[in-house]
Computed example of a mutant assay.
Amino acid sequence: MDATITSADGIRRCGWAHSAPELLPHHDDEWGRPLHGDQPLFEKLCLEGFQAGLSWITILRKRDAFREAFTAFDIDRVAGFDDRDVERLLADARIGRNRAKITAAISNARATQRLVENDPGALDAVLWGFAPPRRTVAPGSYASIPASTPGSTSASAALKKLGFRFVGPTTVYALMQFAGLVNDHSAGCHLAAGEPGAL
């Protein structure tokens, strides 16, 4: 796929944004836009954990179901899930029914709860503390971007020390891309570094 493609509206976007109808608004409105807040970042961390080994479009298409099943990813409510909730989630055909990923999401809610209990914004601070300097030159293509970076490796290690699971360097780098800690829009995309609409 080309690094960038001109859409029907005349705007040039990353090539991957054209591979499914749901990806175009995701590309423009979410991916790479700076995201802050413990709860939104917790949700993205969970979704990236469920995405491991799957394509992102699979998770994006199930996101509303995930939000319903996981009580809008409310940190305190997910932290309170018990064995009955695990079985409920395993029986929910609308979501990714992987026991290890489900229990990791619950464990990560508890880790987040501990982290932010006396320090609201602490998850945001931890993650954004690993954001590299903003790009001034966009990558030539999405294919040229590594699956992980030294920054995502360090962030992964820090999260694991805090008790988080399913937060390997590749998963964390996907989160960094999604949440705008990095701008990995390809050169030529209207949202790429150096473009007037850059994030």
Rank of each mutant, 00 (worst) to 15 (best):
I75C: 02
D76R: 09
D76L: 11
D76T: 12
R77C: 05
R77Y: 02
R77I: 14
R77D: 09
V78Q: 01
V78I: 09
V78C: 01
A79L: 05
A79S: 14
G80A: 15
F81Q: 02
F81E: 02
D82G: 09
D82R: 10
D83V: 09
D83W: 03
R84F: 08
R84L: 05
R84E: 13
R84A: 06
R84W: 09
D85K: 00
D85M: 01
V86G: 00
V86P: 00
E87V: 10
R88L: 05
R88N: 03
R88Y: 04
L89Q: 01
L89D: 00
L89C: 02
L89H: 01
A91R: 08
A91G: 12
A91V: 12
A91T: 11
D92E: 10
D92S: 12
D92L: 08
A93M: 15
R94P: 08
R94M: 10
R94Y: 14
I95V: 08
I95Q: 09
G96T: 07
G96C: 10
G96D: 04
R97F: 15
R97M: 11
R97D: 06
N98D: 07
R99F: 13
R99W: 06
R99P: 12
K101Q: 07
I102V: 13
T103L: 11
T103I: 11
T103N: 15
T103F: 15
T103P: 14
T103Y: 10
A104L: 13
A104G: 05
A104D: 06
A104M: 07
A105N: 06
I106Y: 00
I106C: 02
I106K: 00
S107L: 06
N108E: 06
N108I: 03
N108M: 11
A109W: 02
A109K: 03
R110Q: 15
R110S: 04
A111V: 14
T112W: 13
T112C: 04
